[in-house]
């Protein structure tokens, strides 16, 4: 009844479409991430290249993965640092 009143008064009428869109957005992040298994591999290579400009890292134990939870997907990288570089090379130099 309250819902009905709310919708009549036009105050809080979200409809289900926004819910649909949000669920779809999430599910597609999952789907697209699993569709391309190469994605993580190439992301890892890029990360190593960029980070190596600043610090020495342990490439062997470097771990990059997508963590999927119910309502979010997060990129989690665990990158052990061996040594900080005293001076960093400017990538453009």
């Amino acid at each position: 009844m309250i819902d009905f009143l709310k919708s009549v008064l036009g105050k809080e009428a979200p409809g289900s479409k926004n819910l649909a869109k949000e669920r779809l957005r999430l599910v597609l992040v999952h789907d697209r991430a699993t569709v391309s298994p190469h994605l993580l591999e190439s992301l890892k290579e890029d990360l190593i290249r960029v980070i190596s400009n600043y610090m020495e890292i342990d490439e062997k134990t470097l771990d990059v993965q997508l963590n999927r939870e119910d309502d979010s997907v997060a990129l989690v990288a665990n990158i052990p640092i061996i040594k900080m570089k005293r001076t960093y090379q400017d990538a453009k130099a």
Binding site: G15, K17, A20
Partner: peptide, 10 residues
């Protein structure tokens, strides 16, 4: 219109 179906833009 009611917001119960995704629209074209969505």
């Amino acid at each position: 219109k009611r917001g119960d179906m995704m629209n074209i833009e969505d």
